[in-house]
């Protein structure tokens, strides 16, 4: 099983019981749920029939789970048949399924162009951004699951808090004392230095790397590839100055920092922005070693 279901299901059902004191609303909702389920079953049957007759339809198997809805508390896979159109992405297929078959199908998405980082998921066994994954590149049936190694909130939505905590643990903001004199004067930065940090600044916080990392899976305190890359972005930026760089290296040298990385390259492989994460981690290790030698 590639996904973790929150352990406290009892707790969530308790909360439900508390919020649903109004019994009339309760009945109505239950009735509605029954009807919705029937309706869904009917439409699914229709879909399957249509799919058999139509070759230009793709088959999607989507992970479903909802902690408070009857019939969804036990994780399951739903099958959707979606008419294929040229250029269709996994996100397009999910949106089609939601808007035409089951409006409760839940996933994060916003920009549709690989910059907001909302829709990283586990597609046919790999971490992908749904919006930039073409259906034609995938084998059918296409299996869509939430990101592994994160707690599932509902369907394809996972809890990102841990990822955000790690990102924020590396002092992810520019720090320097060396500003130019003139008020309207910029700090100078060489083209080479800007080029050096360029790839690291492309991170969209999608969490694909963290989800793919075996070390992060076993060590919850490991900063993880994205956070270390964020540290790299500042440590390598010449505008911060030498003193700050020392501080940056101390942060990433901590017990759950760069030395945990075993260079398996899984993060680099899944990064939708092609950031050479493993290389960045290795480079920070080298910098840290050089730095430690200097102070011997």
């Amino acid at each position: 099983m590639s996904t973790q279901i929150p352990k406290q299901t009892e707790e969530s059902s308790e909360t439900e019981a508390e919020t649903d004191v109004a019994s009339k609303g309760d009945e109505r909702r239950a009735e509605k749920r029954r009807r919705a389920a029937e309706e869904r079953a009917r439409r699914q049957a229709e879909e399957a029939e249509k799919a058999a007759a139509d070759e230009d339809t793709i088959e999607l198997k989507v992970f479903r789970y909802d902690p408070e809805v009857e019939g969804k508390q036990e994780p399951r896979f739903d099958t959707f048949h979606v008419p294929f159109t040229k250029g269709m992405t996994v996100l397009d297929a999910l949106m089609y399924s939601r808007d035409n078959y089951d409006s409760s199908l839940t996933f994060r998405h916003s920009c549709r162009q690989a910059v907001c980082g909302s829709d990283a998921m586990f597609v046919n066994g790999g971490q992908k951004l749904a919006c930039k994954t073409q259906i034609v590149d995938l084998e059918e049936p296409i299996r869509v699951e939430p990101l592994p190694h994160a707690e599932v909130e509902k369907d394809l939505v996972v809890d990102m808090e841990h990822f955000y905590d790690q990102m924020e643990a590396v002092e992810p903001y520019f720090q320097t004392d060396e500003y130019p004199d003139g008020e309207l004067e910029e700090q100078r930065q060489t083209r080479e230095n800007r080029e050096k940090v360029k790839m690291s600044t492309r991170c969209i916080w999608c969490g694909a790397c963290m989800s793919s990392c075996n070390i992060a899976a076993g060590d919850n305190e490991y900063l993880g590839p994205a956070a270390i890359n964020k540290a790299y972005r500042f440590a390598m930026d010449e505008r911060e100055g030498e003193e700050m760089k020392q501080k940056r290296l101390e942060i990433i040298e901590q017990e759950h920092g760069v030395w945990r990385c075993q260079t398996q390259f899984s993060c680099t492989e899944v990064c939708p922005k092609d950031i050479p994460l493993t290389e960045h981690i290795q480079e920070l290790k080298r910098e840290a070693v050089k730095n430690n030698l200097k102070f011997w």
Binding site: L184, E186, Q189, T190, R194, E240
Partner: peptide, 23 residues
């Protein structure tokens, strides 16, 4: 706008650069 852009640069925004290091 000019002071705001320079403010962003002072917050570390990675602008593209000219040969002389200016934005």
């Amino acid at each position: 706008s000019p002071e705001e852009v320079i403010q962003l640069e002072h917050w570390g925004m990675p602008f593209s650069r000219e040969e002389d290091g200016r934005v």
